[in-house]
């Protein structure tokens, strides 16, 4: 084990997979000399050269489509979309091409493409640069959606993404790039998709999160323990498609209460999917309606106080738990 930051774990995963498999190459806006907007590819240009670490123009649809094409021709491209906000101009490629070609072709082709993108608000970047669209991507059959919360998982999941024969949307929370954690040194350390992790165990409530919201759940669990004498299961989904509901259901049947936490808007959001599945599979075990703690239904404001109010907080999680007792 080595302690490292999330961004370094991500870089290490890409580096190891490039060393392991000559079919892997990277492209994206400013991933070369600049080293990536969030410094995830720093140093890789020097190590692998401009053919395999390719700077691109600002053409998200073009470069994602190019990734699809290269994948069809036998390569394993990683396309970095600087932030998830820009994925909106590449949706045609992600949704109409990457996610559907295997199915539409009757299984003739497959698209081993890794799309990395940074997500989340909280940095006063305003409404166009603060999206959390994980749930939107999880909506589309054919996509795998990975949302790591810890550096070790980020490395294992990203390495696993490069081995996947289908398109993977790998979403990194901007607030977590500097977060430190233990990362396995084993170059064959993979984290399987569709396996949630119980990062903290308790008996009074189940807190469910992914990506950044796992940390809110974790801090809320601390507050519940210290201030209210309550203990919580904290479940880190790690991938939201495939979704490991069995772990969530097992926990809820034991704690009888659940709060789902995400940065994304509450209306029509992914937390609603989890809440519905809990209702379908654990209704008789519930002592209270499943609560959702999520972003407020507004475009993200620039003002710091307003932005803080629009995002879910650990205090919101604690309040939700207390209100269901």
């Amino acid at each position: 084990m080595t302690e490292m930051r999330m961004r370094d774990a991500i870089r290490e995963a890409m580096r190891e997979e490039m060393l392991r498999d000559a079919r892997v190459f990277l492209m994206g806006e400013d991933i070369g000399a600049y080293g990536g907007s969030y410094a995830c590819t720093r140093g890789l240009l020097d190590e692998f050269g401009p053919e395999r670490v390719r700077d691109t123009p600002i053409s998200e649809s073009g470069i994602v489509g190019a990734g699809v094409g290269a994948a069809l021709a036998g390569f394993i491209p990683m396309v970095e979309i600087m932030t998830i906000n820009f994925s909106l101009v590449a949706l045609d490629q992600i949704v109409n091409n990457a996610s559907k070609l295997h199915y539409m072709s009757g299984g003739q082709v497959n698209v081993p493409l890794v799309l990395r993108m940074a997500s989340g608000g909280g940095s006063q970047l305003g409404a166009t640069h603060s999206h959390s669209l994980e749930g939107m991507f999880a909506h589309f059959p054919g996509l795998t959606v990975v949302c790591p919360a810890f550096p070790g998982d980020a490395k294992g999941l990203l390495k696993r993404s490069f081995r996947e024969p289908n398109p993977v949307v790998f979403i990194e929370h901007t607030a977590l790039y500097g977060a430190r954690g233990e990362v396995p040194d084993d170059p064959d350390h993979l984290v399987e998709f569709g396996q949630a992790a119980t990062v903290r165990s308790g008996k009074d409530v189940t807190l469910v999160g992914y990506s950044g919201s796992v940390h809110q759940c974790y801090r809320a669990a601390d507050m519940l323990a210290e201030e209210h004498g309550l203990t919580a299961d904290v479940i880190d989904l790690r991938t939201i498609r495939p979704l490991d509901m069995s772990s969530v259901i097992r926990s809820v049947r034991r704690t009888n209460r659940a709060v789902v936490v995400e940065d994304d808007w509450k209306f029509g959001g992914f937390a609603g999917e989890i809440a519905a599945q809990i209702m379908e599979r654990a209704f008789d075990w519930l002592d209270a309606p499943v609560a959702r703690v999520a972003g407020k239904d507004v475009p993200m404001p620039y003002n710091r106080n307003l932005e803080y109010a629009a995002l879910p907080s650990e205090e919101d999680v604690v309040e939700a738990v207390l209100s269901m007792l």
């Binding site: 994602v64 699809v68 069809l72």
Partner: peptide, 17 residues
């Protein structure tokens, strides 16, 4: 035009190989 970027990727693959 949704397949035009895919042709770019095919061309890229030819060059990379």
């Amino acid at each position: 035009a949704g397949h035009m970027p895919i042709a770019v990727g095919l061309g890229l693959a030819a060059n990379l190989s």
